[in-house]
C-alpha cells in the first residue's frame, strides 16, 4: 500500500490543530471560578462525546449503504467508524467520571445520561465482538450492518437523556434541569475554545477514519494473498 500524500498532510494538520486546541484550552480559556481547573476537562469531554455520536451516525449511514449496494467499501467505513467511536466514547465516559468526582462528590452515579452512555458504549463494543465471532465474511458483514442500524437507537437516546429526564448532568447548550450540578456560564473565550476543540476533534476523526479504512483494506488484501497462496500450495 503506497503512502498517501493527502493523508500525510491531513495527519500533520490534525496534529497542529491539536496543539493549538491544547493552547486554547489551557492558556486562552480562563479558569472557571466555581469548579476550578477541572472544568477544563469539559472541552475534550464534550468533543469526545460528539465524535462518538458522529462516528456511530457514519456507521448507521454506511450500514444502510452496504445493505443497499453490497459494496465492501461501506462495510470498511462502518467498521472503522465503530472502532473510533468506541475509543472516543470511552474517553468521554472516563473523563466524565473524573470530572464528577470533585463536582458531584462521586466517581459514578446511575444518572440517565451516564446510564444511556454506558449502554451505547456496550452496544458498540458488542458490535466489534459480533464481527469477531462470525466466520463467514458475507454473514458477518450483513449481521454487522443490521446491528449497526439497530444499535444507533442508543445515540439519540443518550443525547436526549439530559433533556427529557430529571438528571444531575448539566446541559451546557440549552437549559439545564434545576437539580443539575456542575453548570456554568461560558464566557466568549471559553466558547471559542469549546468550538475549536469540537472542530479539532472532528478533523482528528476524519484523519483516524482514513487511516483505519486503509488498514482494513490492507487486511482484506493480505487475506486474499494468503488464500491465493494456500490454493497454489495445495494444487
Amino acid at each position: 500500500m503506497q503512502p498517501n500524500q493527502h493523508l500525510r498532510i491531513l495527519t500533520i494538520s490534525s496534529m497542529l490543530m491539536l496543539v493549538l486546541s491544547i493552547y486554547m484550552v489551557f492558556v486562552y480559556a480562563p479558569l472557571e471560578i466555581v469548579m476550578g481547573a477541572v472544568q477544563r476537562v469539559f472541552y475534550y469531554h464534550v468533543a469526545s462525546g460528539w465524535i462518538g455520536a458522529l462516528a456511530f451516525l457514519i456507521t448507521l449511514i454506511c450500514s444502510i449503504l452496504y445493505l443497499a449496494t453490497r459494496n465492501l467499501k461501506w462495510d470498511h467505513v462502518a467498521l472503522s467508524s465503530v472502532e473510533i467511536g468506541v475509543v472516543f466514547t470511552s474517553m468521554n465516559i472516563v473523563s466524565g467520571s473524573v470530572w464528577a468526582r470533585p463536582i458531584w462528590n462521586t466517581w459514578w452515579t446511575w444518572d440517565p445520561r451516564l446510564t444511556t452512555a454506558t449502554i451505547m458504549w456496550l452496544l458498540y463494543a458488542a458490535y466489534l465482538m459480533l464481527r469477531q465471532s462470525l466466520e463467514n465474511p458475507q454473514r458477518r458483514r450483513t449481521f454487522a450492518a443490521v446491528y449497526g442500524i439497530v444499535a444507533f437507537v442508543s445515540v439519540p437516546l443518550t443525547f436526549a437523556a439530559i433533556r427529557i429526564w430529571r438528571t444531575i448532568h448539566p446541559v451546557i447548550i440549552g437549559s439545564s434541569d434545576p437539580s443539575a450540578e456542575g453548570n456554568f456560564e461560558m464566557t466568549p473565550p471559553m466558547r471559542n475554545a469549546f468550538f475549536f476543540s469540537l472542530f479539532t476533534f472532528t478533523f482528528l476523526y476524519v484523519t483516524l477514519l482514513w487511516h483505519r479504512i486503509r488498514l482494513e483494506q490492507l487486511t482484506v488484501q493480505v487475506a486474499a494473498m494468503q488464500s491465493r497462496l494456500l490454493n497454489k500450495l495445495s494444487t
Partner: peptide
Amino acid sequence: STPDTTIYMIMGYAVF
C-alpha cells in the same frame, strides 16, 4: 475561593 481541582484536570487529560 476557587477550589484546587488541578489533580482531577490532570487525571482527565491523562485519560485523553
